[in-house]
Each structure stands twice: as C-alpha cells, then as structure tokens.
Design a protein around this nucleic acid. Structure first.
Length: 802
DNA sequence: AGCACGCCGACT
DNA sequence: GTCGGCGTGCTC
C-alpha cells in the first residue's frame, strides 16, 4: 500500500502530499492521521499520513521508516479542518496540522556523525580521539572541532555515516509500578517460607495476596512504611515484577474543587438558554451571541448548556482568554464537572499540555476549558463550542497559521452540526453587527444577577489636575477615595494600561529619543537591569548619562511602569499594603494565582497591575477601581483603538462592587471628552456601538468591509517598496470595483531588525477571487523569497495593523 | 528548510 | 590544476 504524506518542510514547493510505500510489516500499523518518519532527500524527517491508497503514479518510491504514534494523532475530520485552515489563512498544510497539536508532538531533529566499531581504527588518529568514548557525535559539535573537512573525507570513504534522527520533543512521564509475579497460592507458599525476621517482606507479600493489581512503587512504600530496598529485593527474587508506567502530569493534582450543583436560573437566563438547549437537542448548527453585562450570570448559562451536551453523550469546548488569568473560571468548571474537565492554557509546561491533550484524545474527559488552541481539542463527538469574552484579541493567532478561534469554532460547528455560543459584555462590533443582521442569534442578559447597581464612575481630567498644580500620577479625587478605602478596610484595584505606552528615554533639552539602531522604534527602559531594550529585535544598550545629541545631562526616562506607580504609592500612602502584578512578578509558575489569593484573603489593600488584572477578578471587598491612564491606547495607529479602550474600561469598571458593597470607579484621562471613555463610564454599549459603527462605515473598515493586510519586508528599502508597489498594482487589476487597495505605504513600524517594511491594505466586501490572487502573488515571488531576503506576509482579517 | 550539484575566483 | 564560494533546483 502507498501512504500520502505531508512532510515537515514548511515551504511552498513541499506543500503537497508525497507518496511512500508502506512496508509489509507496517501495513496493519500505519493509519491515516499518524505521524511517521520518512526519508526525504538525504534526510529523515517527520510527516503526517493523510491518505492511504493502493497505487501511485510514480514508480520509484521510498519506504516509510517507522511510525511515531501507536494511534493517529489527527482524525480525518481534523485533517480536513487543517486543510481548510491552511486554505483560509494561506499557510502551509504542515503548519496548520502542527498548530492543531500540542507542541510536544513536533519533531526534534538531530544530525549526527556515526562510526562503526570495525571502521573506527581506519580513521586518522585525530578523528579516532573524537570517538574514543562514543560511536557518534552531533553535527554541531563536529563543526566546532574544526575537523569538518577531514570528517567529510571519511564520509565519502564510507568509514563514517551521517545519520538523521527524528525524535519527539518531550518524554512521557513514567513511574515505576509493581505487581506480583506469582499466583496467590505461590505467594502464600513464599510467605510461609520467610523467616520471622523478614517482617517487611512479610507485609509486602500480605499486601499482594490481597491486591493483585499494579501499584506505583512510591504508593506501595508509603502505605506499608517500607523502603525501596525491600521491594527491589523481592523483584530480584522474581516474586514481584516491575514495569515503567506512563502517568499524567496533573497541574491540578492535590487540589480540591468544591462540587457545585446547577443554580436556579433567572427568567432572563432561562430565556437565553432555551434556544441553545433546543439546538443542542436537535443537533442544529447556529451561532448565538450571548450579550450579557458583567455579573449577569453568563457562566451559569455556559455550564448548564454543557450539562445538556454531556447528557446527550457529547463533548464540549469552552474557550476563555488566557485561562491562567482566571483560576476562578477553572474552579467553576472543575466544581461542576469534576475530573471530566481538561484544562489547556499557556501557563502549563509542554508536558502538561500534552497530557491534557491526551486525556481528550483517549476520551477520558468530556469538557475542555482552554485558550485559543483548545478549539482544536480532538473530540470526535462535539456538541458545543463556547467562546467566552469573544471580543478578546487573543483569539487571533499572530503567527502562521494566522487564524481566529471564532472562525475555527464556527467551521467545526457547521461540520459537526452543533451550536456555537459567543459570549461577551462588550461584543466585538463584527459580532454584534452580525447578530443585528440575523447571521447570529442575539441572546441578551441586560441585568446584573442580584440587581446590583452598576458602579458610580468618575472621569477625572488630568489636564485640569496639572493646571491646578498636581503633578503626581494620582488625581486628588482618586487619592481621597484611596484613603477612605484604607480607613474602611476595603480593597482597591489600580489599573495601569501599559499597552502602547512603554517607558522610553528622552532628552529634556533637545527632545532626542533613544532609538533602536536596527528598528524604527524607541528602546524600552528596563529599570531593574538598568538597560535599554528593543522589543522587536532584542537589541540591548546602556542607559546614556548624557544626551548623545546635545551632551545635556537632562536625559531621563519617561513613561509610567507599575514599579514606578508602586514607589509613588508608598510615598503618598506609606501605610498601604500593595500587591503588584505585572510580567515581572507573575513570571514564575503559579505566582499569578498566589498573588490573587493573597489579595482575596485581605493581605493587601491595593492590587496594582496591568492588562492581566482586567478580567475575572470577583472579590466582594473591592469597592474602588482606579484607571490611572485610560487613553494610552486610544492613540495607537489602529482602527480598533476606540473599541479596545471601551472594552477595557467597561471590563475594568465591572470589577468594582460586584457583591453587597457598592462600587466606585475613577478613570483618569487626558481626553475625557472622547466618546469611548464617556460611554464606557456610563457602561453604555449600545450607544458606543452606534457611534463606532458610523465611524467604521465612513472609513470603510470592518464590519462594513473585510480587510486583508500584506506586509513585504526586505533589507533594501527600495526592493521592499518596489515589490509592494507591484503587488498593489496586480491586486488592483484583479479586484472588483468595490474593493479598495491601499498601498504601498510604510508599515507603522517601518523597520524591524534592519529589514524595511511596506504594506498594502485591502478593503473589500465580497471578493471570491481574492484568495486565488493572493496565492498567485505568493507563487510569483516564491523564488525571490527563497533566494533573497524577501519576505511576504499575508494576514486575512488582521487584528494588529503593524 | 536543507542539501547536492554545478559553475566561477583564489590559492598550493 | 584544486578548494571552496554561494546561485539553482529538488526532495516521493
């Protein structure tokens, strides 16, 4: 039989199946969806079997070397989903398949030089020394010895072989398990033959007479209070046998989740859930937009919908944005569905991710809660996909394949004929517009659960503060309220919006800003290392003490980091206990949850943080939320900046007063009259939607138009510009009249790592030929892409326009 | 992506 | 006359 294999070479020319003979011995083993090792040119590489057929049109085929899996890692439906994904995102099929699997399944390649014992003595002395203790050395190491040409001579003589190894990236975690090697009768006989002094052995035998199953060595020694030696001795005597047993790493091991029962739904929740339950029962595909204000009980709707799916013997996926940020969410799912839940998020190690994935693959769990890539969970009988906080940008992957989890979810929903729920308090304009058009079904939860009032929001004009002589980062109003909370022993959350607002070094005399020499952006100041770093290429430099332009020593850093805010806080409120949450304090595993726990227990008065504290916090004692700089991302070159600002502010404000105590919110801003800030303060989504839609319509942006962004980069500015120009001309000629092709324009970051970047932005309504045209472009420049430094990136529905 | 093959300049 | 530079094209 012949296998069609997609090989692990992400390139245009290899983005198609290659035929291989399945050797007789593997005919019953090799299945569609398995990873295999195949010879490819002189190398050995990994590939995916995507088809099996009796014959090939070619006649001199190579053989599959070996399978890498015992069971397929991709089902046929996931393979076709992968093909769709590569088609939609214009990426390679191999990249699409790999994006659907845990990283642990990506192959690791090693090139080695190997010498056989017979030919070892034939080598020149210098080379023999290299192989004294080993039969092979890594190619990389060989390069460093400087004997590479000498070694290559031996390769041609046939004394040394070049071998290519394909390995899995991680090892399976194993533990030693023990069981009896004898029958119960034999054990009893052995027991009676023991001397009375061998008490411990006696205990072990007694245990195995009662239990003849496998037990982990560690568990056995712990329960019987014995040492390993006792067991090892019995293994040696062949009374017991041992075996390496594969185990799962459970990130939530030893954690207790209080069991919860379905809550009684409010009338509104019931009305929202009815149509969902109906489509689940009828196995109908439909997309629901669940639009519910913060605290309206969306999660309970999710949980009870999943319940329904499980009762029908189907499985469900719930996507949440970066789940490690919301341990509370995990608690709710584990509490309701116990060990039927697998959790997948970026906080897990590669091994843990792999283990969670395998629980799904083996059918040991029925529910997955996870970040973006969990949308590919290998369930075979899916009944529901939920996307919580559907407006979140983290659902879009910025690397190839540049997919949006929402599109994948809907595709799977259509294929499997089941509903998809998109939930948000601040839906993306795209989704809300679709709901209004009837493409999605709108379900609303307009009221908070306990009818709590929305918090009182104050907008503080920081320009006024400055005029009245307050140069600190806290307005007098915020400071006053902070003091009041300290007295009343209530908690405050301070939110610093850092995105698009990094600390940079500027000369106060001449305005010189320290820039990266390779990229056209300013270097970011890193306080703890006293260094300047470029976030795009990694360039590092010292902080200058005098201005390189005008020699003035009035050069200092600008921008507000959480550390600086913390210092200021200590100055003005020395008695306040502050917990700071940012990338520095949460980089260690589990530290995120630990800090939140401390805050919840009341070990601090103020929680100070960035983006990451905007979601999921639901603590009864928080009565004040302060937003230190509401408008920093309003001025980014992004047509979604108003939308993002509105969503973020609404989100943050929702943190206050979720329980008995009423909440207050202070928003500090330099543009208090901006509609996204004013309307976020009122929590007025509907009016924001209307305003923003008007603007989008005028500017021909989504949801009125689709957009696709092409970015061309090259070491030479002229080349990048020239190619972009040609692409723009080509596209303009092939698109319909209603499409707009903007370009070539310099990218908002015109140079990264010494590569100049130009873009072409396409806005269109309906362009069925677009994908075809884009493929043509990629084909056209394929040669230049491989031979010169030209790079062309295509992003269909981009979220970042840089 | 790698790697071999192949055609030109700088050395023993 | 050979070593090694990297342009070109292929990998079942």
């Amino acid at each position: 039989m012949i296998a069609e294999v997609i090989v692990d070479v992400p390139a245009k020319q290899t983005d198609r199946p290659f035929d291989y003979v399945i050797p007789q011995s593997l005919e019953t083993v090799i299945q569609i969806g398995m990873r295999v090792v195949v010879p490819f040119g002189p190398r050995r590489i990994q590939g995916f079997v995507i088809g099996i057929k009796p014959q090939s049109t070619l006649n001199k085929l190579k053989k599959i070397i070996e399978p890498l899996d015992l069971t397929p890692v991709l089902s046929e439906s996931l393979i076709s989903l992968g093909n769709w994904l590569s088609e939609e995102t214009l990426s390679y099929r191999i990249s699409a398949y790999q994006a659907m699997l845990p990283a642990a399944l990506k192959a690791k390649y090693q090139k080695k030089l190997q010498v056989s014992t017979e030919s070892k003595h034939l080598l020149p002395q210098t080379l023999q020394d290299l192989f004294t203790n080993q039969d092979s050395i890594l190619w990389e190491e060989a390069k460093e010895t400087g004997y590479l040409s000498l070694l290559q001579q031996e390769v041609t003589k046939g004394h040394i072989l070049i071998i290519y190894e394909v390995k899995d990236k991680i090892k399976k975690k194993k533990r030693l398990a023990i069981r009896s090697a004898l029958s119960t009768e034999e054990l009893k006989a052995y027991q009676s033959s023991l001397t009375p002094r061998a008490q411990k052995q006696h205990d072990v035998i007694k245990y195995f007479i009662a239990n003849n199953d496998w037990i982990f060595l560690t568990d056995l020694t712990a329960t019987l209070q014995i040492s390993n030696a006792v067991v090892k001795e019995l293994v040696k005597k062949e009374v017991l046998e041992e075996s390496e047993r594969e185990i799962y790493r459970d990130p939530y091991e030893n954690r207790y989740f209080a069991r919860t029962e379905p809550l009684l739904l409010t009338n509104e929740q019931q009305e929202a859930i009815d149509p969902i339950h109906d489509r689940i029962a009828k196995s109908l595909h439909e997309v629901f937009l669940l639009y519910g204000v913060t605290g309206s009980g969306k999660t309970e709707v999710y949980l009870q919908s999943i319940q329904k799916v499980l009762e029908r013997g189907q499985e469900a996926i719930c996507l949440v944005p970066e789940i490690s940020l919301t341990p509370q969410m995990v608690h709710r799912f584990k509490g309701r569905f116990g060990n039927q839940v697998a959790v997948m998020h970026s906080g897990l190690s590669a091994g843990e991710k792999y283990d969670e994935w395998r629980k799904v693959q083996r059918g040991e769990v029925k529910v997955v809660v996870g970040a973006r890539s969990a949308v590919f969970a290998p369930f075979e009988n899916l009944g529901l996909i939920i996307i919580d906080e559907e407006h979140e940008t983290s659902y879009k992957q910025e690397e190839n394949p540049k997919y949006h989890a929402k599109d994948v979810a809907i595709k799977r929903g259509k294929q499997g004929s089941f509903p998809v729920i998109l939930g948000s308090a601040t839906p993306s304009l795209e989704s809300f517009a679709r709901a209004k058009k009837g493409v999605y079904t709108l379900l609303s939860l307009p009221k908070r659960m306990n009818n709590q009032d929305l918090p009182q929001v104050d907008i503080v004009d920081m320009r006024e503060e400055l005029r009245s002589g307050n140069r600190s980062m806290f307005s007098s109003s915020l400071l006053e309220k902070l003091q009041l909370r300290l007295e009343k022993k209530e908690q405050t959350v301070l939110f610093l919006n850092k995105r698009g607002y990094s600390s940079f070094v500027m000369c106060r005399d001449c305005g010189y800003v320290v820039n990266c020499p390779n990229c056209d952006i300013s270097l970011t100041y890193h306080r703890h290392q006293q260094q300047m770093k470029c976030h795009y290429c990694g360039y590092e430099d010292h902080v200058p003490s005098v201005c390189p332009e005008c020699q003035s020593d009035h050069i200092r850093y600008f921008g507000t980091g959480t550390q600086k805010v913390e210092e200021e806080l200590h100055k003005v409120l020395p008695e306040a206990r502050v917990i700071r949450m940012d990338v520095d304090t949460t980089s260690k595993k589990g530290s995120h949850e630990r800090l939140l726990n401390e805050f919840q227990k009341g070990h601090a008065d103020i929680l100070l943080g960035t983006q990451m504290i905007a979601k999921g916090l639901d603590f009864p004692n928080i009565t004040l939320v302060g937003v230190l700089s509401a408008d920093t991302m309003l001025h980014l070159p992004d047509f979604r900046s108003s939308e993002k600002t509105f969503q973020l502010l609404t989100q943050v404000s929702g943190r206050a007063g979720r329980h008995q105590l009423p909440g207050e919110v202070v928003i500090q801003t330099y543009s208090p009259e901006h509609y996204s800030i004013e309307l976020a303060a009122e929590q007025n989504y509907d009016q924001f939607y209307e305003r923003e839609m008007m603007i989008r319509k005028g500017l021909k942006y989504p949801p009125f138009y689709f957009i696709t962004l092409i970015t061309v980069s090259h070491e030479q500015l002229m080349k990048a510009l020239d190619v972009t120009e040609k692409i723009t001309t080509f596209l303009t000629s092939r698109l319909t009249k209603s499409a707009i092709c903007l370009g070539p324009v310099a990218s908002p970051i015109p140079r990264i790592n010494n590569r100049y970047r130009y873009q072409c932005l396409i806005k269109y309504k309906r362009e069925p030929e677009l994908n075809q045209s884009l493929k043509k472009i990629l084909d056209q420049y394929q040669q230049e892409v491989t031979s010169t430094s030209l790079k062309i990136s295509v992003d269909v529905n981009p979220f970042i326009l840089m």
